[in-house]
Design a binder for these strands. Structure first.
Lengths: 348, 348
DNA sequence: CTGAAAGCGCTTACAG
DNA sequence: CTGAAAGCGCTTACAG
């Protein structure tokens, strides 16, 4: 079989030494055009593929691949959402043990664009082979994907897709996840009920994901259901002050079933309000399996949780970075992670 | 860091040659008890771990790990359910490229226990390092996990957990998946609707999975809902003759919403019946994303599909077998794969 | 521009 | 029972 052909055989067929074949494989300088062509031809004819295991064994010590991972400061807290990507990173690094790849964790503060930018600059100053991070500050991210990236290392973003080039995204399509929420709620509530989309933020910025989830939800409702637009309410609250939400809830007719779509991880904040509300027949769907949501899912106070699988995203990112760095293949670095639907019974 | 310690350093500390360290690591004969203890002590003190990459590079050619994969004959059909585990196998083998692991596919006929047993015997006669298969014939599986396994190679079963020892299972808990179906349907249908559990088989054996799914569904209903038992009907049909199902459907009151739980992959068979039935408000849930179910999910004729992720099961099996064979670690070979909930909007 | 040689960490056939 | 040496397939510093 073609598979078994190694560098030695290619060298023999091309009439050169294995050192020269290696130079061609890696596009290193110092090969005459003539030789280059001859070797290239043999490689494509034989279907030769570099043995990555041997390659990494040789290189593991002298040129360990070092990935900078830049996450929100909360990554250090074991119970926190931002700890999950770290777990995915660790799992991938563990699987690649012996292949000469490590990572170093850097953090920034969610509310502080400067902290992000200076951490990134620190990373670029040092000799990392790739950067894995999250694109929450658009301007800073624009900078780091362009002029700041002196050594032109691959940059992979998790969590959110942004309009940025010279970089990769591994994320969940928020528009689609809004549609998933739409389908699940509509299935239960039907066209005669009411729907409320709750977007609670603790800053005055509505995250891109939240906006897209609402858009996906509304588009689903419009295209696939007969729910009248007047039955779909939006509540936005920029200071996490729940009394505004409470007031809004009171204004929604409570004689009909109510579907509640929380566009971020804060669904757990609503259960207190619901307890005191006159709405008896509610179904709630939110995002992310934090400890609060998990507990409420188990108590059936929240019915559905959509999971962005941040650990899986990061796991795939590291595997993809490794593939890019060792095989020049970036195909796994632009992935739309499917929306995972969790209910009490399929929790792990 | 401890990580960086290699066989050379262990040899130096123990005052022996690296060959001897290697003998100790692999528990090979021909090491004096004294030397053995000294080396073992150094290994545990230093936390030395074999470099699997170097090990596999050395061994890849001379002792390639060869996994026998024994699946239903339908595995050859690209569009068939049983082709999916094969895809998982291939993905895992691909990822382990260069580590010296291959597989060979064998098949049997679903209705024919002998074909399974003789394929297994053929496998045992040859020199495979592990067997990956499915445990559909209890007696034959009992034999192959006991007396027939002459070389005592690891046997891993996919799809279904059985009461068998000396083997591993990577499967989905069918009882749990029944509960998932229960929750999803109950959420939509509520206590005033009717429920029907449909188990269509083309043999007169009801598969273990189907029985457990029904049990899990019924247990969920009883424990977590107020649905009266009289509202839950079971339809069993041993010859895939749909007229019996049709008759049964006609006997269920059609004034109320109807939840249909199909305990296997044949949900698609019911849509024709439903089209002609008087039941207007139905919600159907079934298993497995075959081409028929996929099409009907897209047309909203089936609302939920529970996925056993046969590809993921097989992928994990191969990865786990590799880990067992190279590190003696079987921890990933007994896995309960979570139930994946699919609706039209989160299909990949 | 090219080749011969050493070495990554482990394994094994051989010699003693 | 133990060690020295060769070699897995690739990479690189060195010599020419």
């Amino acid at each position: 079989m073609d598979k078994e052909i190694g560098i030695k055989e290619v060298a023999r067929l091309a009439g050169v030494s294995i050192g020269t074949v290696d130079r061609v494989i890696h596009n290193r300088s110092g090969v005459s055009p003539n030789t280059f062509d001859r070797v290239t031809k043999i490689i494509s004819e034989t279907g030769y593929k570099k043995n990555n295991v041997a390659s990494r064994l040789k290189l593991a010590k002298s040129s360990t691949l070092n990935i900078a991972v830049l996450l929100p400061n909360e990554a250090y807290q074991e119970s926190h959402y931002w700890h999950l990507p770290l777990q995915g990173v660790e799992k991938a690094i563990e699987e690649l043990q012996g292949m000469g790849i490590t990572y170093e964790l850097f953090t920034f503060y969610m509310g502080n664009e400067d902290s992000f930018e200076s951490a990134a600059n620190e990373i670029f100053k040092n000799d990392f082979d790739a950067l894995l991070t999250v694109p929450f500050f658009y301007d800073a991210c624009h900078k780091i994907t362009t002029e700041k990236n002196q050594h032109n290392i691959p940059i992979v973003f998790l969590d959110t897709k942004q309009e940025l080039s010279h970089c990769y995204f591994i994320y969940q399509n928020s528009y689609k996840s809004g549609a998933v929420a739409g389908r699940l709620l509509h299935q239960v509530i039907g066209k005669k009920g009411n729907y409320v989309i709750v977007s609670l933020t603790n800053t005055n910025i509505r995250e891109k994901n939240m906006v897209e989830r609402e858009a996906g939800f509304r588009a689903f409702m419009q295209e696939h259901t007969k729910v009248a637009e007047e039955r779909i309410f939006s509540i936005q609250n920029s200071s996490n002050n729940l009394s505004a939400v409470k007031t809004a809830f009171e204004q929604i007719a409570n004689s009909e079933p109510l579907g509640i779509f929380v566009t971020n991880s804060r669904a757990y904040l609503l259960t207190e309000i619901l307890k005191r509300s006159k709405h008896l027949n509610t179904t709630m769907i939110g995002f992310d399996l934090n400890a609060n949501n998990l507990a409420l899912l188990n108590e059936n106070k929240i019915q559905y949780v959509l999971n962005q699988k941040p650990d899986f995203q990061a796991y795939n990112a590291i595997k993809g970075i490794f593939k890019l760095l060792t095989e020049g293949n970036s195909s796994s670095l632009s992935t739309d992670i499917p929306v995972e639907i969790l209910i009490k019974e399929n929790l792990m």
